[in-house]
Design a protein around this nucleic acid. Structure first.
Length: 491
RNA sequence: GGCAUCGUGGCCGAGUGGCUAGGCUCAGCUCUGCAAAAGCUGCUACAGCGGUUCGAAUCCGCUCGAUGCCUCCA
């Protein structure tokens, strides 16, 4: 493959950097996946769709990508105190299920939703509970390094000691002094030496069902540990890209860096990438506050936020019209605007197949193609890519009107490039054409009505022609009279 | 309170030290039996106040406002 000129914004350096993978032509990428204790909401999906785009584009460039995205199926404590509650256990009690039934139920839901979005499955999707052994080994190593201590069956990471030789806070831009100065007064029951320390292993309370034996106690791993265990296991001590939602930057990713550096004495990740939040009513979507929408409820229209249902592909197109590092606010108006644009774009793409070619091109397709790649090479700038794709709407119309010309070679390049970006890179789906048998029958029936209407129009029987048009419109079938005949669309 | 990000035209949303982002809406026009659809054209914005500069919406400072993190969260 030719070396692409790809630049990635690195959260660690706060700069765009040229992307140079550790191994030529291969990329290791880890993304923090969901905690499966309830249905994924649309905000969660945005992050995974952002990284789906990145995964797809890296593959499109010719990289062999190993994309690891975990499933967090071992609950984390909600609070540091002993009274903390694990969301998976809480949900299990609520729904009267075994914890692993909860996990299974919402893992399936997650996969179903991501499939509806036409997101590619990751190369490896490991679970936290499947890697308890690896996590224990890491805790042992960190203790051996003298950077963790055991207290009452739990093990904590010694942040202050780590910070003497390393830089804790380099990802999130926090100074440990500030953190100490701003420590809130906690109830004093903690086993930690310092409030900044975080748990590597927690001893299970008697009522805690999810527990595993360890050298320190029957318990469960700390909530930053699984990602370190699974990323290093499948990608090595150092790998190219680590991604996740912006809200995981601190403390989760900061702690991952500390754990990995404590174990392996090297910085684990070359490029840290953070996808920004999807907001609703100007606030982050969040399960705990109830400010969220479930994907299925927007696909069906069963919600009181949106004016109508929106398909997964339109939703995705809407998201990709904003850059992954920008906050995106979710509203019915914005979705509707995206939907109209999307349909227009798809229409133009389809028309590409019906164009006439000439001996010369008046449009510089290679320059246009380069602009598309330049956009994506600039930190995966999908809004610019989409703006470029909208150019084909103008091309198609100008070519149809004979105002521009194109050679057969250029037209096929245009078609191929558009196809690649639309379907391979953005992973969109053309929903207009339902290739079902029912669809064919419906099409045949409507075309018959179109013929009858055109006959009526030719006979100046406008009462009849308007009746056909009106009745079909009432059924959600819109007729569109064009120069080359009448087509229809289903609303 | 601390750390960080952001504030762009009616709406959404890119980007940049000097050159039209793009989409949607709206208006006018073309087409049409009429309408819709489609197409064309038009609508020139960067929170406020200072500073740097030949030139800033883009860099710097301050003010105001919003959001995220600091407790589980994509």
């Amino acid at each position: 493959m030719k070396s692409p000129n790809l630049y990635i914004y690195n959260s660690l350096s706060k700069k765009k950097e040229k992307f140079v993978p550790i191994h030529e032509n291969a990329v290791g990428m880890y993304v923090c996946g969901p905690t499966v204790y309830s249905n994924v909401h649309l905000g969660n999906c945005r992050t995974f769709l952002s990284f789906d785009l990145i995964f797809r584009y890296l593959k499109h460039l010719g990289y062999k990508v190993r994309y690891v995205r975990n499933i967090t199926d071992a609950g984390h404590l909600e609070n540091d105190g002993e009274s903390g509650d694990d969301p998976i256990l809480k949900k299990a009690r609520l729904e009267q299920l075994e914890p692993m039934e909860v996990v299974q139920k919402y893992t399936v839901d997650f996969h179903t939703i991501m499939a509806k979005f036409n997101a590619l499955p990751p190369s490896i999707e490991p679970t936290a509970t499947g890697h308890i052994y690896e996590q224990i080994a890491i805790v042992e190593k960190i203790i051996e390094e003298g950077l963790a201590y055991e207290k009452n069956g739990s093990v904590y990471f010694d942040v202050l000691k780590f910070n003497q030789t390393n830089n804790y806070g380099k990802l999130s831009g926090r100074q440990i002094e500030d953190m100490i100065a701003n420590t809130r007064e906690l109830a004093a029951q903690s086993d930690k030496k310092n409030p900044q320390d975080f748990a590597l292993w927690k001893k299970a309370e008697p009522q805690h069902i999810m527990r595993w034996p360890s050298p320190w106690s029957d318990g469960f791993p700390g909530w930053h540990l699984e990602c370190t265990a699974m990323s290093t296991k499948y990608l090595g001590n150092q790998f190219d890209i680590h991604g996740g939602g912006m809200d995981l930057k601190f403390p989760h990713h900061e702690c991952e860096i500390a754990q990995a550096e404590a174990c392996n004495h090297v910085s684990p990740v070359n490029y840290w990438m953070h996808a920004n939040m999807l907001t609703l009513n100007g606030k982050k979507m969040s399960k705990s506050t109830g400010n969220f929408i479930l994907p299925d409820n927007m696909f069906t229209g069963n919600n009181n936020i949106l004016s109508k249902p929106f398909s997964p592909t339109v939703t995705k197109f809407f998201m990709y019209q904003a850059h992954y590092r920008s906050i995106l606010d979710f509203s019915s108006e914005a979705l509707e605007a995206s939907e109209k644009g999307f349909l227009k774009l798809m229409d133009a793409y389809r028309t590409l197949s019906d164009l006439n070619t000439s001996n010369s091109s008046s449009i510089d397709i290679n320059a246009w193609k380069k602009a598309c790649y330049d956009a994506m090479n600039d930190d995966f700038n999908s809004p610019i890519l989409i703006a470029n794709l909208f150019e084909i709407v103008k091309y198609v119309n100008a070519l149809k009107d004979g105002k521009e010309t194109i050679t057969e070679t250029d037209l096929s390049l245009l078609k191929q490039t558009t196809h690649d970006f639309l379907f391979e890179v953005l992973g969109l789906e053309d929903t207009a054409i339902e290739e079902s048998q029912d669809g064919e029958k419906l099409t045949a029936a409507i075309e018959l009505l179109i013929q009858l209407r055109n006959k009526a129009r030719a006979d100046k029987d406008f009462a009849m022609s308007d009746k056909i048009r009106g009745e079909l419109a009432a059924k959600g079938i819109q007729l569109k009279d064009g120069k080359d005949g009448t087509t229809f669309s289903l609303n």
